[in-house]
């Protein structure tokens, strides 16, 4: 019975069907099925398939985004259950706090990046747009993030990416988090200039970069 539900969860993630994910996650809770297995064998297996299909060019961005949304729904239901039972969720590949910097409200690139990280097995904490440096850091501390990812689309808001790094230095926290920056006007040269740990031009390159940096 549990196996069937896990397979159903996996398929619902692949289909990007959050209604089915919600229904099956509820069933896991009601029938006291192991929620860690539901996450590991169901949700995560499903999102892995989506990530691979995207890399192979067989599915498109909306497929990945909808699967990531469905993943969020499943985790939102199962994680509190796992915590309640005092169980461990198992290791994610890493935790990333994502946001668009202060003064900037463009978020489409950040949202795509969040979905790609989710599809690659990361835990993503998206804190929205127009976010102050200290709020990035507060959230990163709260969730024990590995990476802070800061997006900026305007040449006039890029300096806020530097402010995050300055703030971390000021609070003696610079070695606690890797800082990734991205967004249209940014570049590797700019990332080097402000002392960011990573820069990528596209969402999938950001994931590859995170894999490499966190593996070190």
């Amino acid at each position: 019975m549990s196996e069937e539900i896990f397979a159903g969860l996996k398929q619902a993630i692949i289909d990007g069907d959050e209604d089915v994910v919600e229904e099956l996650s509820q069933q896991v809770i009601e029938e006291s099925i192991n929620p860690v297995d539901a996450v590991q064998v169901g949700l995560i297996k499903g999102i892995e398939v989506v990530g691979e299909l995207w890399k192979a060019g067989e599915v498109f961005l909306p497929d990945v985004m909808m699967s990531a949304e469905a993943m969020k729904v499943g985790l939102g239901l199962l994680e509190p259950e796992i915590a309640k039972l005092g169980m461990s969720e198992g290791d994610s590949k890493g935790k990333i706090v994502l946001g668009t910097v202060e003064g900037d409200i463009h978020d489409i690139g950040k949202n795509i990046t969040g979905a790609m990280f989710t599809a690659a097995g990361y835990k993503v904490f998206d804190i929205g747009t127009d976010i102050k440096a200290e709020d990035f850091v507060l959230k990163a501390q709260e969730v024990g993030a590995d990476i802070i990812g800061a997006s900026a689309l305007l040449t006039t808001t890029m300096s806020a990416q530097k402010q995050i790094i300055d703030y971390l230095k000021e609070k003696n926290l610079r070695d606690q988090f890797k800082v990734f920056i991205g967004g249209g006007p940014t570049s590797q040269a700019y990332a080097d200039e402000i002392g960011a740990d990573g820069w990528a031009e596209s969402a999938d390159e950001a994931v590859t970069l995170a894999d490499r940096i966190l593996a070190k």
């Binding site: 060019g57 498109f60 961005l61 909306p62 489409i108 690139g109 795509i112 596209s202 969402a203 999938d204």
Partner: peptide, 8 residues
Amino acid sequence: LSDMRNGS
């Protein structure tokens, strides 16, 4: 358009 492969 948004390119449906990578969103650009």
